[in-house]
Nucleic acid binder design. Sequence first.
DNA 1: TCATATACTGAAAATTTATTCGGTATACCG
DNA 2: CGGTATACCGAATAAATTTTCAGTATATGA
Lengths: 115, 115
Amino acid sequence: MYERKIPVDLSCPLRLTMSLIDSKWKSCILDELRDTSMRPSELHKALPEATPRVLDLQLKELVDDGLVAKTIYPELPPRSEYSITELGRSLLPILDSMIAWGETNRELFEKKYGM
Amino acid sequence: MYERKIPVDLSCPLRLTMSLIDSKWKSCILDELRDTSMRPSELHKALPEATPRVLDLQLKELVDDGLVAKTIYPELPPRSEYSITELGRSLLPILDSMIAWGETNRELFEKKYGM
DNA sequence: TCATATACTGAAAATTTATTCGGTATACCG
DNA sequence: CGGTATACCGAATAAATTTTCAGTATATGA
């Protein structure tokens, strides 16, 4: 895993929390896993703009941070499933409030950022 | 301002909200401005790890997105102050929940990320 | 046999973000 | 006069993140 040259002060609780979810797809992955565990290929179907590679990299970090759990089934063709942990689930209220904020204020940004 | 070559789908409310606060210092800036308006030099004292340049760049984006307001006093030496807007203030509950989550779970990450 | 699908990985390239450095301008103070 | 401080900006560089591409291995089905 990449080791930062310029460290971030994670003793700041805001930065600690942000650091766990602020990459491009982590918050979306947690949101997708809220109801059901998913295989990597299913996750890619749910988030088609994310390449399988980046999903793989970010899932690995989420697992490493204890927010997501991975189950490997020793079958062929290979099968694995990712599910949200209790720790990851405890972040969902934060994501919920972000989703609600985004829905409430969407129109303010519609023109500025074409959507 | 830099224009992305690979656009992000901001019609997703989660990604819209994230896009407004997920750069390195924006959430910290909003947190600093919650009680009082600040001059750039004061903000730099409050966040000494952030260079004046990056504060300047991120303040400009925050102003552009309507989360922060800028007041210029036509004095010399120049003086300007940044304050949080009502829109920016409406994000503070989200930051509060991130701060609370980080405080609650800090010990889980203490060893992994030296702090 | 050959294409397909699965999960995953390494490495290089591209993209995005942050840092560093030097410069604008003006007033105050010693 | 020369140093300090203010806010700000352009450009080059560096750092960090994401994308692209090619590859591992094995079973299934046409």
